[in-house]
Simulated assay, not measured.
Amino acid sequence: MSDGRVMVFAPAPQLTVTIEQHHDEPELHVHPGGQGIWQTRMITLLGAHVTLCTTAGGEVGRVLAPLLDALPGVTMRMVMREHGSGWYVHDRRSGKREEIAERPGTPLSRHELDELYNLALAEGLRAGIAILSGPAKPSVIKPDVYGRLAADLRANGCRVIADLCGRYLAAVLESGLSVVKISHEELIADGLAADGSTRELITALIRLHDDGAEMALVSRADEGALALIEDEIYAVGLPRLTPAEHRGAGDSMTAGVAATLAHGGTLSDAVRTGAAAGALNVTRHGLGTGHVDAVRVLTERVRLTPIRKAT
């Protein structure tokens, strides 16, 4: 059992630069970003400790590395790279997100991958719970790395949570997973569901379970999630909140699941906390952010309603 720690595998973080409008003046925000970073923020807010296995390199990496080191409640296990980390610049002064420019970063070299893999394996086994987060672009790291890491962690008693899709999800399902979280848009894009109907998504959840996921969770924007827990499928009733930023809700959901399991909670508790964290995140502009008391209050309002048996 985990002792309140989670290893987050984030092989390709990004430097995020966002321009926003505050009253009559523009504001510049510079942060570390990417799926694993946003998950890390929420996990630590919920009281679990994160060991972050990640990389940084090049001119961008010289800016990114100290920002990563400054993340509170995080033990950093970083591989310094020869070449550049990824980045993006977004303009949100109009109230909408406009992409100005973006680079995913250069692919990890063989030596960098070997070093990162060893760090993630050791720290995942030490923590007992691991999240495998995906890269912004598939050019940076190949899916087979995820498949090997999931297999090695699982074979040695670590609970593995995957927030992946496409070839990355297929690679880790072959190894078996404790939890898989995916959005309904990703299921449709992967050909696992014909549309976003409850019937199609239930069929996809069962398939994910049959393919190797002990628990499967699909987010559906503001419609509420669906969860397969111990051969029962549930509708996850979410609190109604006014959104400020839709992005990041799924990552916060994954983080809530991981933090709860790290503290010894049940799968049902994990889904409820994850749903609350995701719902709260959409009320904020910062991704992977929120207040722990608000998450706890909202968790009490999340309802799991049985729909049908998975078998």
Rank of each mutant, 00 (worst) to 15 (best):
92 R>V: 02
92 R>T: 04
93 R>E: 05
94 S>L: 12
94 S>H: 09
96 K>D: 08
96 K>V: 12
96 K>Y: 11
98 E>S: 08
98 E>L: 13
100 I>G: 05
101 A>K: 13
101 A>S: 15
103 R>M: 12
104 P>S: 02
104 P>E: 00
104 P>K: 01
105 G>P: 01
106 T>C: 00
107 P>R: 02
109 S>Y: 03
109 S>G: 12
109 S>H: 07
111 H>I: 11
111 H>A: 15
112 E>L: 14
113 L>Y: 06
114 D>Y: 12
114 D>A: 15
115 E>A: 15
116 L>R: 14
118 N>D: 15
118 N>W: 15
119 L>Q: 15
120 A>R: 03
121 L>Q: 06
123 E>P: 13
125 L>K: 05
128 G>A: 05
128 G>Q: 03
129 I>L: 10
130 A>I: 06
131 I>E: 10
132 L>K: 03
133 S>D: 00
135 P>M: 00
137 K>Y: 08
137 K>Q: 11
137 K>S: 14
139 S>Y: 05
141 I>S: 03
141 I>C: 04
142 K>A: 11
143 P>F: 01
143 P>Q: 03
143 P>C: 04
144 D>C: 08
145 V>I: 11
145 V>Y: 07
145 V>W: 07
146 Y>S: 02
146 Y>R: 03
146 Y>T: 01
146 Y>M: 01
147 G>S: 02
148 R>I: 07
148 R>V: 11
149 L>G: 02
149 L>N: 02
149 L>S: 02
150 A>L: 13
151 A>V: 12
153 L>T: 04
153 L>I: 04
154 R>W: 10
155 A>S: 10
155 A>R: 09
156 N>C: 07
156 N>S: 10
159 R>S: 13
160 V>I: 11
161 I>L: 13
161 I>W: 08
163 D>M: 10
163 D>F: 09
